[in-house]
Design a protein around this nucleic acid. Structure first.
Length: 344
DNA sequence: GTTCGAATAT
DNA sequence: TATATTCGAA
């Protein structure tokens, strides 16, 4: 058992005095897209953001390539549960404390000025999604429950219930994940056996490929055994949604029904953060709920990202955004990390 | 028409 | 590198 994942965890700790300090952060007013659109950056010393800004613009404007074609979708088929409407997070944490956007913090907030403030989301590029171990965990869980056969991007996305996650996000990750699984199969081909339960991560012997780093993310969450079995199209059998009795699983649809969802929502603590090359800040929720933590994979709704393909923005959970442009081997990229807390 | 999946681009 | 976007196929 390695806790390598703790890396990121310890990192932000540096910048943060202590979790308790940053209790509730709300970004409700500022939406990621808005911020990016207006190029709002770190709130200059606002008392809230101890960021040390390393504004360096070595590279002048990056490329302004304009090739954004987006197909928006989020359509619902007949029996699709649908993504939850922007539910007023009736949570305990009112989002009026630390305000990045509200008045205090953010200078950015006001940026909205301008003539029409409608239709904000459009032709905007969202930041790259960073797959944190937690997020990946949800992903794996979803896939596990669906079974390889049914594990297609759309379905996975729905099961994960992470707001802001797009089908494309999942598809991309899935592609890589499959590759990873394949590689593992190759190593242990034929084998079967064993009962060992979990496929056991990257066994001591790494692949000759040498890049184990790639596997690290994947390694952080256990791979369900059934994933590693080669399956022949053959005939029969077929589609069964993984009937493995692994863990309890509650379909999103169920949540849709009653306020139960709301209740659950109260427990979720999710955060999203924008990060740049390095430097990250995060807000912490007043998680002090006397309750322990929630470990339920599916029993929680997620943080909201900005604009959905729907064109509407949903923000509710606390966010911290840190957008910087700069120098970096990448030339400055905004990355969005949304991660659910309470796992692993 | 929609979604998947792999290739390709950044 | 990781993730995004594109493109052809089902």
């Amino acid at each position: 058992m390695r806790e390598e994942d703790s890396n990121w965890f310890s990192r932000w700790d540096e910048d943060l005095p202590s979790p308790d300090e940053l209790i509730s952060i709300s970004q409700t007013l500022i939406t990621p897209d808005l911020a990016s659109a207006f190029d709002i950056h770190s709130p200059r010393s606002n008392g809230n953001t101890p960021i040390s800004i390393l504004h360096h613009h070595s590279a002048s404007s990056p490329q302004l390539l304009s090739h954004y074609h987006h197909h928006g979708q989020q359509q619902q088929s007949s029996s699709a549960p649908q993504q939850p409407p922007p539910q007023p997070n009736s949570s305990e944490f009112d989002s009026s404390s630390a305000e990045l956007g509200g008045g205090g913090g953010g200078g950015g907030g006001g940026a909205t000025s301008g003539g029409g403030a409608d239709e904000p989301a459009r032709t905007l590029k969202r930041p790259r999604l960073v797959w944190t171990p937690q997020l990946h965990k949800r992903f794996v869980d979803a896939v596990a429950h669906l079974g390889i056969k049914n594990a297609v991007p759309k379905t996975i996305m729905q099961l994960m219930s992470v707001d802001g996650l797009t089908r494309e996000n999942v598809a991309s990750h899935l592609q890589k994940y499959r590759l990873y699984l394949k590689r593992m199969q190759g190593l242990n081909n034929g084998g079967g056996g064993g009962g060992g339960g979990v496929a056991g991560g990257p066994n001591g012997g790494l692949t000759g490929s040498g890049d184990a780093a790639t596997d690290h993310l994947f390694a952080s969450s256990p791979v369900p055994a059934h994933f590693l079995h080669q399956n022949g199209p053959g005939g029969g059998g077929g589609g069964r949604p993984n009937s493995d009795h692994f863990m309890p699983y509650m379909p999103v649809a169920a949540l849709n029904h009653h306020q139960m969802a709301a209740a659950v929502a109260g427990h979720q603590q999710i955060q999203a953060q924008y990060q740049h090359h390095h430097h990250r800040q995060m807000g912490h929720f007043g998680s002090a709920q006397g309750n322990g933590q929630f470990d339920h994979p599916f029993l929680s709704r997620q943080a909201h990202l900005g604009p959905t393909r729907n064109g509407m923005m949903q923000s509710n959970s606390g966010f911290v955004e840190d957008v910087e442009s700069g120098t970096a081997n990448n030339g400055g990229r905004k990355v969005l990390t949304l991660f659910p807390t309470g796992e692993d």
